[in-house]
């Protein structure tokens, strides 16, 4: 069906392309893995919250002319605040220590957020055009757009920043303590609810960063998050739930698998590669590549 010469020629560009797309996945998954690692909840509202961040970037660009990268300064803290409030005042009160409640409340949140967005932003697809949208960089024959390259750098930087935060700050140490043993942390005087909310907030801050790097090459609509939820879960599982390094490596891997799968099997069937790997990892190495066995 596809001749090998074509594949040979496209292999390197597809690889580079997969890596840069994977960096975006990694950024989205960073927040998800942190939330899972600390709160042990599967956040079904993650996609909708990414959408919120994307609209924030769009509005800042269209109304105030703020460049998407400059918008990092606003969107990241903004999402942090939203995350803190949501966890503290909406999700936590509904949890009652039951997984099914968390499931339902995050599901409910995603319904609310998505429909509010449909109402206030309307349902059409919006995209932005910046000066660098069509600025291309040639990497030894693989031509990729500038925003994608910046997203790659952004993902690395975010991952590094998170690692530093977790290792070298009091907050990071508290988060790690709570992640390991919430009851124990409570006993030694850590305000667990606050740490939960901070973790959720940091998770959403990562989404804010992802949105700033994503919008210049993508679009936003109220439904846009759906396309990223499953892929983010895959990344989290592949990397190991709760592991940042895992998220980064997992994201890049998934990007590459998807890209090569698309090249070899076609873009529709190629999607299957990601899920097959997802299932295989879950079965044979549920802790993921970098996670600790529980």
């Amino acid at each position: 069906m596809i001749d090998s010469a074509l594949i040979g020629a496209a292999l390197w560009p597809a690889l580079v392309n997969g890596l840069t797309m994977g960096a975006i996945y990694a950024l989205i998954a960073l927040g998800l893995t942190l939330i899972y690692g600390v709160l042990h909840i599967i956040n079904f509202a993650h996609g909708s919250l990414l959408m919120v961040a994307l609209y924030a970037v769009l509005v800042l660009f269209e109304r105030l002319g703020i460049d998407p990268y400059a918008a990092l300064v606003v969107v990241v803290p903004g999402m942090f605040g939203i995350g803190y409030v949501l966890q503290r005042f909406v999700i936590n009160p509904a949890r009652h220590g039951r997984d099914e409640n968390t499931l339902l409340v995050t599901l409910g949140l995603s319904i609310v957020i998505e429909n509010l967005a449909s109402h206030f932003f309307k349902t059409d697809t919006r995209q932005i055009e910046t000066a660098y949208t069509f600025m291309m960089v040639d990497l030894a024959g693989a031509v990729i757009s500038m925003p994608r390259l910046l997203a790659f750098a952004g993902a690395l930087a975010s991952c590094l920043a998170l690692a530093v935060l977790m290792r070298s700050t009091d907050l990071g140490r508290a988060i790690r303590a709570v992640a390991r043993e919430a009851q124990g942390a409570r006993v030694v005087g850590i305000d667990v609810d606050h740490v939960f909310a901070m973790s959720f907030a940091i998770g959403l801050a990562c989404l804010g960063a992802a949105a700033c790097f994503l919008l210049p090459t993508y679009y936003v609509s109220p439904q846009v998050g759906h396309g990223f939820v499953l892929i983010a879960f895959t990344v989290v599982v592949l990397g190991g739930m709760g592991s940042f390094t895992g998220s980064l490596v997992g994201g890049l891997l998934v990007g590459v698998i998807e890209s090569l799968g698309g090249l070899l099997l076609g873009e529709s069937l190629g999607q299957i590669g990601v899920f097959v790997i997802f299932i295989v990892i879950l079965l044979f190495r549920p802790a993921g590549l970098f996670g600790q066995r529980t």
Binding site: A10, G262, E267, S268
Partner: peptide, 21 residues
């Protein structure tokens, strides 16, 4: 004939194939 999913997050591969063909 190239089929793609909804949504497709990235069209670079398809673009490259079109370019090669």
């Amino acid at each position: 004939v190239i089929k793609h999913a909804n949504p497709t997050r990235d069209f670079n591969n398809i673009a490259l194939r079109i370019k090669a063909r």
